[in-house]
Design a protein around this nucleic acid. Structure first.
Length: 560
RNA sequence: GCGCCCGUAGCGUAGCUGGAUAACGCACAGCCCUCCGAAGGCUGGGAUCGGGGGUUCGAAUCCCUCCGGGCGCACCA
């Protein structure tokens, strides 16, 4: 059972906000009602929180923001009894608040009191009951996963984890583009390699997939069926080679994803949607809504009515549905069964955003679809550019990267920047065990705490209480607690703004605050109360770090 | 030509639902291990936030425009 304990600092803040609101109504009855919101100022000397209400009231009050802030504070102080604040100061129009140490001390007790559940580090509820559909990484089943997909996987999985942490009902999915021309090329490529086993002069298709990964697939068929397919008609062998190849390659893609720590709730086959008639139904749906017209024998979907820059064909003049028809159908399915629908696309898909948003709006789901682009990646090894051209032998697969740098570095580097921001991924840096490498900094923080806790041994009680926690007064101690308290809000921000990089930075900040505290304050000290309180702080910090890293898909080692 | 993404300190980036002297890491200069992991900490220098207009009490953030870099613009997927 998860106990929801209100946060002392939030209670105090809310009470003060109410007092300011009342003061505003009393002093400036003609001004519209203002919402008193608080934010953490950048500069620590401005306190823990600040509000800028005075600026919005100034024009109605016809006084300077400075005067208004001062008047609000004076008035709010009347009838507002609290010892929560060390200072309440109007400065240059802002109202700056600094909490008394006991507020942060209570926060630490609260964090520790709710231990061992997810809620031990805060209990965000923003997502309760909301269904999320999150599609990311999807690729043609024609080859192994490559580096850019690794980034999409990292971003998508971190988002999914963050949202689940906030209570969202998250459904992750991958669409397999196993219909159409690409899969046919795959089937023909495998067939050619198959024939070449017995007849090396058998021609390889000009537009075939030259990658080496095709060869063992052909070999597997040969080992199993021998020459059986050699004299079969194309109508027989082609579907077989397509399906066999798809299964092999999708299987390999799944294995790579799982190795990377990413699991999906659904691997949706495009072919299956065709076979079930879903695509036709999707097109019919558009027709019913009066959103289509015929021209030159093709059926167009009027996407320009919804912000796209040109209308899109859904049915070709030969009657076959386009890929976009699949988009329409599949997105319609996703939109219906979720409250928020998210696509993470590769960097070469910028042009798709408007047509996808258009179809969502057209089908009656405006503002429900978010399309995120995972930015391009330039691979480096030290100062050397690593070629990623798709010519044979040159593709850098995700597996290659994982072999070279490991999951932790890859996962962290891929989510470290804003999703759409271009990333230069330095393979040499990712394995460097020095301070240029951000992954180790955070993991080191976690390992260092684990080490302290080991040294504390059996005698090191972490059962702090009201009395012992009062020992925590050093600025680095209070700053660390304040940082830990932010955690649930940071995760909520990640989920809401689809910005997992914020969590990577936050983890770094936590580690940084811990290291500062560690340097300034001896944890395993003689004084029992101080030792207990500091150990408790260590445990909570470790929990937050572990939790943050887990969301990012990075391990939290106890020793390294 | 049109659309989208990016342009912030020497380098890599955060901040973009508008708020105070623009933040973080690396690099650079200096300092801190008789003590729990120095894979650490502290201090310092370094930025006309690509340029120019506009809106606002207030703009890196919103609007317009121009310039650079990238990616797309198929009855391919």
């Amino acid at each position: 059972m998860s106990r929801i304990i209100a946060e002392p600092h939030a209670i105090a803040l809310s009470a003060f906000g109410d007092a300011v609101g009342a003061a505003s109504r009393a002093l400036y009855p003609d001004a519209p009602a203002v919402t008193v919101s608080f934010e953490a100022p950048r500069r620590p000397e401005f306190g823990d929180f600040a509000t800028n209400v005075a600026f919005s009231l100034a024009k109605f009050a016809r006084r300077s923001p400075q005067d208004v802030a001062r008047a609000l504070v004076d008035r709010a102080r009347d009838g507002f009894e609290t010892d929560a604040f060390a200072s309440i100061e109007p400065v240059a129009g802002f109202i700056n608040l600094k909490f008394a140490p006991h507020v942060w001390q209570s926060e630490l007790l609260r964090l520790a009191g709710a231990s061992d559940e997810a809620s031990s580090v805060g209990d965000p509820h923003g997502g309760a009951g909301k269904r999320i559909s999150l599609e990311f990484g999807s690729a043609n089943p024609t080859g192994p996963l490559v580096v850019v997909q690794g980034r999409a996987l990292s971003i998508g999985d971190a988002l999914a984890n963050a949202m689940r942490f906030c209570g969202y009902d998250v459904f992750t999915e991958w669409i397999i583009n196993d219909a159409g021309a690409q899969i046919e090329r795959l089937g023909r490529s495998i067939y050619a390699r198959y024939r070449q086993i017995a007849d090396p002069s058998f021609p390889f298709p000009e537009d075939g997939y030259p990658g080496e990964y095709i060869v063992p697939i052909a070999r597997a068929i040969y080992d199993r069926d021998g020459d059986a397919w050699t004299n079969a008609p194309e109508a027989t062998w082609l579907p077989f080679f397509e399906t066999f190849g798809r299964d092999e390659i999708v299987g390999a893609q799944k294995r790579t994803a799982e190795r990377f720590g990413v699991r999906y709730d659904l691997w949706q086959s495009e072919k299956e949607l065709h076979d079930l008639g879903k695509i036709r139904q999707g097109i019919e749906r558009l027709r019913e809504l009066g959103l289509t017209y015929e021209r030159d024998g093709a059926l167009f979907f009027r996407t320009t009515d919804f912000g796209d820059d040109k209308d899109r064909v859904v049915l070709r003049s030969d009657g076959r549905p386009t890929y976009y028809a699949l988009d329409v159908t599949y997105h319609y399915e996703k939109l219906k069964r979720s409250d928020r629908t998210i696509d993470i696309l590769g960097p070469d898909h910028h042009g798709y955003i408007s047509r996808l948003k258009a179809l969502a709006a057209a089908l009656g789901f405006p503002d429900q679809l978010d399309v995120l682009i995972s930015g391009q990646i330039a691979l480096m090894r030290g100062n050397e550019q690593v070629s990623m051209s798709k010519r044979a032998g040159n593709i850098e697969t995700l597996d290659d990267i994982l072999d070279e740098v490991g999951n932790d570095a890859a996962r962290f580097f891929f989510v470290m920047l804003a999703p759409e921001s271009p990333l230069t991924f330095d393979l040499a840096l990712a394995v460097a065990r020095n301070d240029e490498n951000p992954v180790y900094y955070v993991q080191y923080g976690h390992a260092r705490i684990a080490s302290v806790l080991r040294n504390a041994g059996a005698g090191g009680s972490t059962a702090g209480n009201d009395a012992s926690v009062r020992a925590l007064v050093h600025p680095t101690e209070l700053a660390l607690i304040r940082r830990l308290v932010e955690f649930p809000r940071v995760v909520e921000g990640v989920a809401q703004h689809l910005a997992p990089h914020r969590l990577a930075r936050y983890a770094r900040d936590v580690a940084s605050d811990f290291h500062a505290f560690y340097t300034e304050c001896k944890i395993l000290t003689e004084d029992a109360a101080t030792r207990e309180a500091r150990l408790m702080l260590c445990v909570d910090t470790k929990n937050v770090l572990a939790r943050a890293l887990a969301i990012l898909g990075v391990s939290a080692p106890d020793a390294m």
